[in-house]
Structures are given as structure tokens and as C-alpha cells.
């Protein structure tokens, strides 16, 4: 007998068992490994694509940021340049103003000094001239300069024709008078009395006369009443002397300059 039916059944069972065994130990593990690998590769590819996409996005962002940064930098540089220019201009202007004010102060100081010197010179010339004149008068006429000055002043008061006197008389007719006499030197009681008498004669007043000394007169007498004044002083002479001297000096300088040329 070629076919043994028990063997056929046994082989059938054996074959089915083998199918199960191979399915359990061969096909399933291998298929599972293949599937897992495919899934893994797919997920990695997807991940890579996502990463690439993200990188592309980041690149675009970065480029935008760079561009913005460059623009900002250029704008800030321009602004800084403008500000520096403005500041430079302002500082130059300030320095120029300061220079101008310093120069003006210097000029002013120089002018003041010149003026002070001038005044001092005038004062000294005045007092020298006055001293010389006094001595000359005393030697030639036997009177002091002060006495002569009081005389001249009294004479001037008694002359109502002068402009000053007219103004003064017109101004305080009827008003209470407060006569003040300023002198550059000390008056003797006689001289005071004489001046008082003259005032009484001229203005018909009994008011007490106040005598005060004033250095700025150089040498001279001044009467002031209610804002009006009448004076005699060597100042006018001195001014003309100064003028003459300056003219002389200027003329001399010009001559010397032209001579130098």
C-alpha cells in the first residue's frame, strides 16, 4: 500500500503544527520588524521634513531679523551723525558766544581802566594846576585861591543874567528853599558868612545854608537848591586843557608816525 492513512493524518497534523510554529517564530517577528522599521523610517523622514520646514522658517525669520537689524543700524548711525552735527554746531555757537562775551568784557574792562586812568590823570592835573595857580596868585596878588574862588562864585551869583541863574530863580520863586553849598575845600567862617549873605541878597531868603565838602568837584563851588544848581569849577578849564593836550598829543603822534614813515 503506497498510502498509509495514519501517516497521512499524522503528517497533516504535523504540517498544521509547523504552520503555526513558523507563523509564531518566523513570519510574525519578521513582518513586525519590517513594519516597525518602515514606520520608523517614515516617522524619521517626516521628522526630517518637519525639521527642514522649521529650519526654512527660521532662516526666513533670521533673514528678516538681519535686514531689520541692518536697517536699524543704518538709521541709528544716520541719527547719531545728525545729532553729532547738531551738537557740534551748538557747541561752536556756544563757544563763539562765550568768546564774544569775554571779548566784550575785556573791552569793557579796558575801557573802564582807561576811563579811571583818565579821571585820575585829570584829577592830578587839576590839583597840580590848581596848586600852581594858587601859588602864582598868592605870589602875585597876595590872595589865596580859595578866597578868590569864593569871590568869583559870589560874583556869578550876583549876575542874574546868566542862564543858570535865570532858571534857578524862575524855578523856585515863592517855594521854601533848601540851599546846599558843595566845596572841594574847607570854607572859613568868614567865607561861609559871605556866601550866606550873597544868597540872602540875591534870592531874598533867610534859610540856613548847608555847607558840604565834595571831592569830585576837584576845585570849585556849587550851589544846589531844589534840584537846580549854579557852580564854578576848574573842571571846565581842565576839560579844555585836556582837549588841548589830547589834540597836541594826537598831533604829535601823527607827526611822529608820519616822521617814522
Amino acid at each position: 500500500m503506497l498510502i498509509d492513512w495514519f501517516t497521512v493524518i499524522a503528517q497533516l497534523v504535523n504540517f498544521l503544527v509547523l504552520v503555526w510554529l513558523l507563523k509564531r517564530f518566523l513570519y510574525q517577528p519578521v513582518l513586525k520588524a519590517i513594519d516597525e522599521r518602515e514606520k520608523k523610517i517614515a516617522s524619521e523622514l517626516q521628522h526630517a521634513a518637519e525639521v527642514e520646514k522649521e529650519a526654512g522658517k527660521r532662516l526666513v525669520q533670521l533673514e528678516k531679523k538681519n535686514e531689520a537689524f541692518d536697517n536699524d543700524r543704518a538709521r541709528m548711525l544716520r541719527q547719531a551723525e545728525e545729532e553729532a552735527g547738531e551738537r557740534k554746531h551748538a557747541m561752536l555757537e556756544e563757544a563763539r558766544k562765550e568768546y564774544d562775551s569775554l571779548r566784550m568784557r575785556l573791552q569793557e574792562t579796558l575801557q573802564n581802566e582807561e576811563k579811571n586812568l583818565e579821571e585820575e590823570v585829570i584829577g592830578r592835573i587839576g590839583s597840580e594846576v590848581f596848586a600852581i595857580a594858587g601859588r602864582v596868585l598868592e605870589d602875585l596878588a597876595g590872595v589865596t585861591l580859595d578866597e578868590r574862588m569864593v569871590d568869583v562864585f559870589c560874583e556869578r551869583l550876583r549876575h542874574p543874567d546868566s542862564e543858570e541863574m535865570k532858571e534857578m530863580q524862575g524855578a523856585f520863586s515863592g517855594k521854601p528853599l533848601l540851599p546846599v553849598v558843595h566845596t572841594a575845600f574847607n570854607l572859613s567862617p568868614e567865607q561861609r558868612e559871605r556866601i550866606g549873605r550873597t544868597l540872602h541878597d540875591v534870592f531874598s531868603i533867610d534859610a540856613e545854608v548847608t555847607f558840604e565838602s565834595a571831592d569830585d568837584l576837584v576845585d570849585g563851588i556849587e550851589l544846589s537848591m531844589n534840584g537846580h544848581s549854579v557852580s564854578w569849577s576848574v573842571r571846565s578849564y581842565l576839560a579844555s586843557l585836556e582837549k588841548m593836550t589830547r589834540e597836541l598829543l594826537d598831533g604829535g603822534e601823527e607827526t611822529s608816525r608820519s616822521g617814522e614813515r
Binding site: N14, F25, L26, A33, E36, R37
Partner: peptide, 28 residues
């Protein structure tokens, strides 16, 4: 003998498969 040889082949196939697929890697 047929049945016995079949068992031997089954043992070989199943054992070999189990041995080989024991350390399957799902990696690259």
C-alpha cells in the same frame, strides 16, 4: 521514519526560526 523525519525538520525549522528571530532589530 516519515513522521520522525518530519519532526526533525519541524524542530530544525522552528528552532532555527526562533533562534534567528530572537534578536530581531526594528532599527536601521
Amino acid at each position: 521514519q516519515t513522521i520522525l523525519t518530519t519532526w526533525g525538520l519541524m524542530l530544525l525549522l522552528a528552532g532555527g526560526s526562533a533562534l534567528v528571530t530572537r534578536k530581531l532589530s526594528p532599527g536601521i
